[in-house]
Amino acid sequence: MAEHKIVNSFVGLQFIYNYRVGEYLDKYLDGLQSKKILGITCPECERVLVPPRSMCGKCNAKTKKWVTLKPVGTLKNFTISHVEIEQGEIKDREKPVIIGQIKLEGADSLLTAKIEGVSPKEVKTGLKVKAVFKDTTEGTLQDLDHFEPVK
């Protein structure tokens, strides 16, 4: 069979996207800015969802009542992450990070967050944790910096 001419194509362009967070997440971020964690309630199943959104998929109902959650909860599940992904490349982290799923008091969904103040070897599910905010908040998700064990 004849050889085919194959060329490598390379495109040095970027697609830039600007996303609107919408009303519900906007209010959640307002909350983080004032160092509060807000959840929202489904009027039918009465689950408190955090982060909040406009619809409960279980009941297909519009969520309604906003609640300010206590910034404490229980670690339900976790993984120790050794790598991070940057533009699709898997890179080793400088040091492992604990990523946990936390059930905040009064919430029904688990919040994913970083856990600090406990070593990867000692971390256990069932641990009581509390939210630690950045000193200066800017109204971004990063305002809620991490959770740490309740002493």
Binding site: Q14, V21, L29
Partner: peptide, 9 residues
């Protein structure tokens, strides 16, 4: 509402 971004390089 707030805007956040991402890039497809």
């Amino acid at each position: 509402t707030r805007q956040v971004s991402d890039i497809l390089d």
